[in-house]
Design a protein around this nucleic acid. Sequence first.
DNA 1: GTCTATACCGGGATAGAC
DNA 2: GTCTATCCCGGTATAGAC
Lengths: 212, 212
Amino acid sequence: MTETTSGRGYHHGDLRAALLAAARELLAEHGIAQFSVAALAKRVGVSSAAPYRHFADRQTLLTAVAADAADRLREQIEAAVADAGPDPVDRLATAAGVYTRLRIDEGIGLDVILQPGLDDPSYTDLHEHTRPLMDTLMALTLDAVGPQEGYRRALVLLEDVLALAHGYSAMQRDGAFSHHQYTSADLEAKSRAAAAVLAGAEPDPDRNPVHL
Amino acid sequence: MTETTSGRGYHHGDLRAALLAAARELLAEHGIAQFSVAALAKRVGVSSAAPYRHFADRQTLLTAVAADAADRLREQIEAAVADAGPDPVDRLATAAGVYTRLRIDEGIGLDVILQPGLDDPSYTDLHEHTRPLMDTLMALTLDAVGPQEGYRRALVLLEDVLALAHGYSAMQRDGAFSHHQYTSADLEAKSRAAAAVLAGAEPDPDRNPVHL
DNA sequence: GTCTATACCGGGATAGAC
DNA sequence: GTCTATCCCGGTATAGAC
């Protein structure tokens, strides 16, 4: 339980919020694998010890980052979907595009939100942020497959769409497109178009999730 | 230009080859972002200085790893495709599945092969390994789209398929599937099935590559 | 609430012994 | 051809001053 730090301070009114904002920049640039508390402190302009006044340790900080990321991702998807047309395939594809762009521009993705080690029961406050995100994604997917199709087809499709959207952002971060110099908007468009193909295809009755 | 080390030595007949093999294990476990020469040396059972007898520095070693990875990926794809049926969509989908499985099990992927900084002209020996891989993938994709379709559709489809295959492996590595406990064979199947959907769908005449 | 200073660790890389 | 020893750097985390 980190202190809330809503009062005014010396260098910052709210260092905690400043750290979370800077964390998004760091994640966008280097990914969670290279994330360091020291680099975060340097970016905010405080000493390397300062973050430990607000977060017990690195893992606690990353948990707060994950909760923040889940909220932002859900909000941005819901906003974009609200502007999309009524076609349910198009709405799911829009969400895929937003995922790809946000992961590139703000480092916000499932790797941050579902970090290994963050799935155990002790992180219930985090789960209160991740569950609404997953509910939103599942609702969009169920609409896209149509009411006569079941959860099984929706689960498979959601995995496919997320793998695609995650993959486009990962290839950008991994430098696989370095000679193309795609922008995040380019990749959002690619991700969206490909997701529409996946979601629009006729269901294959032989395909089931590997696990229920 | 690293020395070839084909002669017999003290601890190993061929430390260079042993290092490349162990690098695949490390990459499979932790990804290239966490790769360290020291951990590699420890795994092989030599001192942390020993690798520097065979590779000038970390970057040179990773370049050799990349060339090795490109060869293995191409070989495994060609072998799997040879066993696949004649349907060109199925052949491309098979390649996607192999990519996903190899990246999970051996850490071999585009992030290793196309590392940022390895695209400049000085790495011509590496390019002699990457080009045949890309040629193989492009040929499979051109077959899948059919002769009447052009390169543009094939380029888009290949990006989509690679993003999907890369994405499934990335989500596994990033822990996004940790509660499912999928095996690499499970994810190979998912990747293959979804790639078949992408490749089998009717082409959308409005879709072009963002850049030629 | 943030600072400086410090302990400790792991990784990159070099020097020189064997 | 590999070893030990060493240096430098950056990251995690704590202690104590202001």
